[in-house]
């Protein structure tokens, strides 16, 4: 048996890689829920769409991975704008049940549309040769793609945090999350802000869906099958902030890996138990506001 140290190393490494994917997909959900008070259960649809656009571009047009990923992000972010205008906008500040019904409907429709357009099979992901297999690092060998995920994820998270903390656009978002009416009365065009934030969140989800396609495979059932993971990240992290979900994603990713490795017979249950425990302790999540 290998040393406990190398097992811990593997779990930490793979858990962080999984966490990066979860975070990219979920962070937009946290912000839109916190800022617009909108329960967007269809958020995973944008991640799925990103995955489909990326794999299709790679498989049918022979596009290289970075280009396909960038295209998927832009396409989904732009496409989310009219969806926000036409569908979501009507229900801002409305009844939560209506929001849930609308977005669950979108989940089912998108799944059926994906199956109709691309078939029930999962989308094959052919990575460049260097990204298959493992790389040797410190305590042992880790999957090369995990390493890429961590590097990209860390870069994106840093960029996102700096953007939200330092830019004018970020300041407006923070202001709107903190106190929507005050932000409006200060002359911030919240309508435009909502659209842009929504597109940003959708684009990030598409990026996460594309980057994470080798961990969370792209199938018509994507948005529904993985919804619970995304919601757990948001629930543990707390609504309306971007750091909470990061910590939550790390917690979920690492706990999930650790459990599957050490106690596989409980593999799928542990994160639910953990979520319940955390929410009993802090009903608004680790970073939620009272």
């Amino acid at each position: 048996m290998p040393s406990a140290l190398s097992a811990v190393f593997f779990i930490g490494f793979h858990g962080i890689a999984f966490a990066m994917v979860l975070y990219l997909i979920s962070v937009g959900l946290s912000v839109t829920m916190g800022m617009m008070g909108f329960v967007n259960l269809a958020h995973g649809v944008f991640a799925m769409a990103g995955g489909y656009v990326m794999t299709r571009l790679m498989n049918q047009q022979g596009a290289p991975l970075p280009l396909a990923l960038a295209a998927a992000t832009v396409v989904v972010a732009v496409a989310s704008l009219p969806i926000e205008r036409v569908l979501y906008r009507r229900l801002y500040g409305g009844d939560e049940l209506d929001q849930v019904l609308l977005t669950m409907g979108l989940v089912f429709m998108s799944g059926a549309a994906a199956q109709y357009l691309c078939g029930p099979l999962q989308q094959p992901l052919r990575l460049p040769p260097g990204l298959n297999g493992g790389v040797r690092l410190g305590f042992g060998e880790v999957p090369a793609y995990d390493a890429l995920l961590i590097v990209c994820g860390a870069g994106l998270v840093t960029g996102l945090w700096l953007g939200i903390e330092r830019s004018r656009f970020g300041a407006k978002i923070r202001a709107a999350v903190d106190n929507l009416r005050m932000a409006q009365s200060l002359g911030i065009d919240t309508s435009r802000l909502f659209s842009l934030t929504f597109a940003l969140g959708s684009g990030l989800a598409a990026l996460g869906g594309g980057l994470g396609a080798s961990l969370i495979t792209i199938t018509p059932g994507y948005a529904l099958d993985n919804l619970v993971y995304f919601l757990i990240v948001v629930a543990i992290g707390g609504l309306g902030n971007i750091r909470g979900p990061f910590l939550a994603a790390l917690l979920v990713g690492i706990a999930d890996s650790a459990c599957k490795y050490w106690i596989p017979q409980f593999g799928a249950f542990f994160i639910y138990a953990m979520t319940m425990a955390i929410l009993l302790w802090r009903p608004r999540g680790l970073f939620g506001r009272a």
Binding site: M1, P2, A7, F10, I11, H14, F18, P143, D146, L215, I216, T217, D225, N226, Y229, D256, S257, A258, C259, K260, Y261, P264, Q265, G267, A268
Partner: peptide
């Protein structure tokens, strides 16, 4: 080992097999 029938990520399970 047995893993849940709908399961997105197999890597930890396979690492377990590898380590044995």
């Amino acid at each position: 080992d047995r893993f849940p029938p709908t399961n997105p990520d197999f890597t930890p399970f396979i690492q377990r097999v590898k380590d044995a």
